[in-house]
Amino acid sequence: MIRYVGKKVLGAAAVLFVLSALVFMAGRGLAPGNPAMTLAGPKASPADIAAIEHKLGLDKPVWQQYLDWLGNALHGDFGVSPISGQANIEVIGQQAPVSFELAVLGLVIAVVLGVPVGVMTASRAGTAADWTMRIPLLVIFAFPAFVSGSIALYLATHYLTNLYSASYIPLSQAPLANLQAMLLPALAVGIPTAPLVAQMTRSSMIETLAQPHIATARTNGIAEWRIKYQYALRAALPPVLTLIGFIFGLLVGGLFIVEKIFSLPGLGRGVLDSITNRDFVQVTGQALVLAAAFIIGNLIVDLVLPLVDRRILRR
């Protein structure tokens, strides 16, 4: 058990380390030709430019810039944006909770919709009921987040005006008003993801339902819903959980798009804005936090997995 946990944690840390280098390089690649010169403006003297370079640490070798940046980032200091003048950590502190809430709500919606549909279609595999449930799912899955998001926004502003409020309010200030602003974006994130969850659950359930212990349970007269949701689902879940990293990936992709459509002040939109503004300091912090959340999410799944299926520890 300790070996397993240690291996997973070390692996995640290694990925995060390499990723931080990639993010840093991307940030430097994004920086305008000579950032200090651009920031100083056209009339600046060479001394001014050198001063700015020194202030941003650009006069040091790149590897040292990276190590400085990483060291500061580990202390929660992501630098100050030379373009907006804002401390990066403050910006991230405002944006991260929005994205986090959106992703969690989206995941909950995807699971609550996807798992039962997967179970229901699995036990009716090949029948007309199976197809009537699956075809709409196939179509929904083909609707990317930017289409379903647009539809959700249209419905929200036309028909569900009571349900939706366009202005974002932090959860801590007014939970109900916050939910009002987040519910539809969360649906736009979750609904395109649900068919994938359903599909995974379905194929895993079909395999499980064919196992002898399910037949034994049936001959013992155990209620069908209990066989499906208690016995079979538990055995069918681990393969679904291992693919959840895939779902996290979809969720992150959904964040970029849904935050843009609904004008939510989250990390996804933050990264895009930083890229537009060529804010190479801010984008590194935002991208790193986003990627770290993704990796930590996957790590949590890896650590929870043995609780559902103890055989994993023996591998």
Binding site: L19, G245, G249
Partner: peptide
């Protein structure tokens, strides 16, 4: 390959395109 897999797809694509 594992490393590429461990990065959120859209984030990677967007960062690559930013550069």
């Amino acid at each position: 390959v594992d490393l590429l897999f461990a990065i959120p797809e859209y984030l990677l694509a967007i960062l690559v395109l930013a550069v």
